[in-house]
């Protein structure tokens, strides 16, 4: 029955990865920006969340404050910097790299170099018995929240006006603009949503993965693998890719502890060699 536990661990990690990859993927799909700062959104979210919990004791408040603050950061980056280099990937990459370093150093300055784990919310700090093993309810909560966010995003994309505009923008931004869609506003909204989701992942992942210098890189890398596997610009790809990478990472660490990354990257290489644009990506 230990396999159920391992599988649940993999799925809950996959859900966190989905939160990160969804924004990364949408930002790329609409703006073709490879956002290397995405892992920093996670880290800043986790750090701000830890401060909010420390000051107020409320996990729920952290879940609101941290993502909103990071969304503002994302909007500022998009409006004042990235926008100037629309569709020019090298300067955009350099800018996001610059922000990655700046944010990493500011975080080190403000929150210090020690790794921190956020406290779990009181309501979900217990365990329940699953097949003879005790399993933390917090991880189950993660799975539920992950699917809920996926559902909301899917509904948003398929059934709202702005979702339809988004789909039009992803398909062909120029034509969408010609049809009178405010693509510029759309860019900002998507960046805000992407940063919001990454920071939400930071707070939710805080009690499991935690926050420490370097976590921004680690998380960004995993999110990249997710979108490479799933395909850039696809929500479904982010969800399937997230689950796949979460499970592979978890089982990889059990079977090949010295080569944990291998179990993620070898399947990635195989998928790429058959589908260079990922499972659900379009050329």
């Amino acid at each position: 029955m230990i396999w159920i536990i391992h599988t649940l661990n993999g799925v809950s990690l996959g859900m966190l990865l989905f939160l990160l990859a969804a924004g990364l993927s949408l930002i790329y799909g609409l703006m073709k920006i490879l956002n290397l700062t995405h892992g920093s959104y996670y880290l800043v979210g986790a750090y701000i969340g830890s401060t909010v919990i420390e000051k107020t004791g409320s996990f729920a408040l952290a879940l609101i404050v941290a993502p909103l603050a990071v969304a503002l950061l994302g909007v500022a980056m998009e409006r004042f910097f990235l926008r100037r280099f629309h569709l020019d990937e090298l300067p955009q990459t350099l800018l996001t790299f610059g922000f990655l370093f700046i944010i990493a150093d500011l975080c080190l300055w403000i929150w210090g170099g020690d790794a921190i784990l956020l406290p779990k919310p009181a309501l979900f700090s217990t365990s329940i018995a699953i097949g003879g093993n005790f399993y933390p309810t917090y991880r189950l909560l993660l799975i539920v929240v992950g699917f809920a966010v996926a559902g909301v995003l899917w509904w948003f994309q398929e059934h709202t006006r702005i979702g339809a505009m988004l789909r039009a923008g992803v398909d062909d931004a120029e034509t969408a603009r010609a049809l009178g869609i405010d693509v510029s506003l759309l860019f900002t909204v998507v960046f805000a949503v992407g940063a919001f989701l990454a920071a939400l992942g930071g707070v939710l992942g805080g009690p499991i993965i935690g926050a420490s210098p370097g976590a921004d890189f680690d998380v960004m890398l995993l999110a990249f693998v997710v979108v490479i596997v799933g395909g850039l610009g696809s929500l479904r790809g982010a969800l399937v890719g997230g689950l796949l990478v979460g499970l592979l990472d978890n089982f990889g660490k059990i079977f090949f502890p010295e080569f944990a990354l291998f179990t993620i990257f070898v399947p990635m290489a195989i998928i790429l060699s058959f589908r260079p644009t990922g499972l659900f990506g379009r050329a």
Partner: peptide, 23 residues
Amino acid sequence: GSYFLMITLALAQVVWGIAFGWR
């Protein structure tokens, strides 16, 4: 383009992972 950036980044991290993990 961006896929190339990402794939080279990810592949390099594999090598890093080996150097880091294979104590």
